[in-house]
Write a protein that binds this DNA or RNA. Sequence first.
DNA 1: ATAATGACGTGAT
DNA 2: AATCACGCCATTA
Length: 83
Amino acid sequence: MNSFANRVRKIVCEIPKGETLTYKQVASLAGSPNAARAVGNIMKLNYDENIPCHRVIRSDGAAGGYNRGEAEKIRKLKEEGAV
DNA sequence: ATAATGACGTGAT
DNA sequence: AATCACGCCATTA
C-alpha cells in the first residue's frame, strides 16, 4: 500500500503520546488539507492495531470513532494525558 | 470510468 | 448551543 493511506499511517504512528491530531491535521500533513474524510476512511478500512489511531480526533474536539468504541478511545486519551 | 461509502469539516438555520 | 445540509477526498466495487 503505497499511497495516501501509507502516508497517513506513518503520520499517525508518529504522534507522540499525550498529543492528539485532528483528521484535518493528519490529512494536511499527508498532503491533502481537505481529506479528513479520506483519513478516517483509511483507518476504518485498515484496522491498524500498530497505529495509535485513538490519538486522532475530530476538529470539534469530539473523539469521532474507533474500532474498539469511542468510549475506549476517549479513555485511552485521558489516561495518556490528552485533554 | 462511474457510483457509492465513510472514524470529517464548515456554514447555515 | 444544537442540528441540518452540503462539500471534500481517497478507496472499493
